[in-house]
């Protein structure tokens, strides 16, 4: 149990440094897509929400789990569509200039 928690903490530590390194290379120009893109990335919460609902055993857990999946799915699809739309615009604005 604790060994699991520790390996998870090691992974989290490395992920924090990786995140900082990768993200500091994103230009100011793309900070909005970075923000909505990372918004999409934490949409992985959907997987946890599915897990919570999938193992719900009583009505209260089912209701809360259901809400979690609805919100998680909104987070994922909304985050993706918004990011894609913004990046498509940057694509277009470059082509328009030529």
């Amino acid at each position: 149990m604790t060994a699991d928690l520790y390996s998870a903490l090691f992974i989290a530590l490395l992920a924090a440094f990786l995140g900082y390194e990768v993200i500091s290379r994103v230009p100011v120009l793309l900070h909005t897509p970075l923000m909505s893109g990372s918004n999409f990335v934490h949409g992985i919460v959907l997987v946890g929400a599915m897990f919570a609902l999938g193992f719900a055993t009583n009505l209260v857990e089912q209701v809360i789990g259901f809400l979690a999946v609805v919100m998680g799915a909104m987070n994922v699809t909304g985050g993706y569509v918004v990011t894609e739309r913004i990046l498509e615009m940057f694509d277009r604005s470059k082509k328009g200039a030529k």
Binding site: L46, M50, F51, L53, G54, F55, A56, Q62, G65, F66, L67, V69, V70, M71, G72, A73, M74, N75, V76, T77, G78, G79, Y80, V81, V82, R85
Partner: peptide, 26 residues
């Protein structure tokens, strides 16, 4: 994932959230 239940509830919830999120974002 082994042992997952409520599968149709999950599909329904994900469908509702996904559709709302998709249209609002579009």
């Amino acid at each position: 994932i082994p042992g997952m239940g409520n599968l149709w509830l999950i599909v329904l919830a994900a469908g509702i959230g996904g559709l709302v999120g998709f249209y609002a974002a579009k």
